Amino acid sequence: MADLRFDGRVAVVTGAGRGLGRAYALMLAADGAKVVVNDSGGALDGEGADTGPAQAVVDEIASAGGEAVANTDSVATPEGGRAIIADAQQRFGGVDILIHNAGIVRRAPLAEMTYDDFEAVLDVHLRGAFHVVRPAFPSMCDAGYGRIVLTSSIGGLYGNHEVANYAVAKAGVIGLSHVAAMEGAAHDVKSNVIVPAAVTRMAAGIDTSAYPPMGPELVAPVVGYLAHETCAVTGEMFVALAGRVATAAVTETRGVYRPSWTIADVAENLDAIRDRSESLTFPVVPNGHGDHIRYSFAMASRAAAMSACAKSRSR
């Protein structure tokens, strides 16, 4: 079976000068997309700038017969985000695919993390996602087509030591993607989250000697599917780690209903409240938010009806 192609599509990939972003850009270009390769070229902590990484990827794409342009604007500001999307619109006539991959790392224990380091990481990962989604989203909706892939992390799902800033940012990205999926559904604008893991410069300082193969090439095809016109899902989270591809989801227990609660009631019902034997998942699209509320309301209504019936029989 031939691989899926992107002929005629325009893609923007942030953080595409190295690592995972580079792999995404090369893959998309090799399969026919015109690519805006965005990378400010900063260090792992976000300091500095260098036009080299983005241009090197563009040169690599061009030498293979593809079409791409380099962009070195920073996603960390609204102006930078607008400039990145404007580049795609001016150079290639629009934007069909947006992959936000740019990221930095500033590690510190929670008790010692500075406000500057907290804000700097949110600026790139979370606010950076909004800074590019915000200008791209309306044009995608107007065109009746779009594919958005935002990058979260297992740190965003489960937390990790010494990266409170990173965990917060990556958790926030999930909410942004879910809203884009809900609001874009009527316009064939799909938004999903990739939760990747690969040995890149982001793994600096981690002993990876015992890791199985974890190159970017094991993640890129998953992102490629989420970016493709045949993508059949939206509002989901895909995990790609060491060759394993899976989905992650928010789940709830069935829960316990009472017409009133005390603190002691919560303690006494804790096992039942936390019982995951009948876990629930409310898909984001078409209306996970509303389905969640309706489920809770229905439980209360059923209990009220049963109570009324019992009182009627006792008379």
Rank of each mutant, 00 (worst) to 15 (best):
E67G: 09
R9Y: 07
I104Q: 07
V121D: 02
M182T: 14
S314C: 10
S277Y: 08
A210N: 13
D87Y: 09
G103P: 12
R18Y: 00
Y225F: 11
R127M: 13
P196V: 01
A54N: 05
I293V: 15
N269T: 11
G159M: 05
Y211H: 12
G156M: 01
T114K: 09
M202I: 09
V69C: 01
I273T: 02
A264V: 11
R302E: 12
A62C: 11
M214T: 14
A220Y: 00
A16P: 03
V222C: 07
G17V: 07
A108Y: 09
D87L: 13
F92H: 07
H100T: 07
R91H: 13
G17I: 04
R276P: 13
Q89G: 13
N160R: 13
P213G: 11
R18C: 04
G8V: 05
N269Y: 00
A267E: 15
A76L: 12
D50F: 01
A220R: 03
L44D: 10
Y166L: 02
D45N: 14
A298F: 00
A203K: 13
A240Y: 08
T208K: 06
A167E: 08
T247N: 09
V75C: 09
D271H: 12
T247M: 02
M113F: 08
P138W: 02
V10W: 00
T14H: 03
I97E: 12
H125T: 03
G17F: 06
V57Y: 02
L176C: 09
Y295I: 09
A56Y: 07
D87E: 15
M182K: 13
N165L: 06
K170A: 00
A143E: 04
V95F: 11
G93D: 04
Q89A: 15
E268T: 05
M140K: 04
A62I: 11
R302P: 02
R254I: 10
A43Y: 10
D275R: 08
V245G: 08
H131Y: 09
G80Y: 02
A111Q: 13
A143Y: 03
P283L: 04
M27K: 09
Y115E: 15
T247D: 06
E217N: 06
A30E: 12
A102K: 06
H292D: 11
M182N: 10
V173E: 07
A197D: 10
L26S: 03
I293F: 04
I85Q: 03
R107W: 12
V105E: 14
L241D: 15
T208D: 02
A33R: 01
R106G: 03
L122V: 08
N160K: 12
M140T: 04
I154D: 12
E278V: 12
V285E: 00
L28A: 06
G175N: 07
R18W: 02
N287A: 05
P138D: 01
S191T: 05
V284N: 00
D275M: 10
G17Q: 07
H161L: 14
A70N: 01
Q90I: 08
I148F: 02
V36Q: 03
S74Y: 00
V58N: 00
G156V: 06
R302K: 10
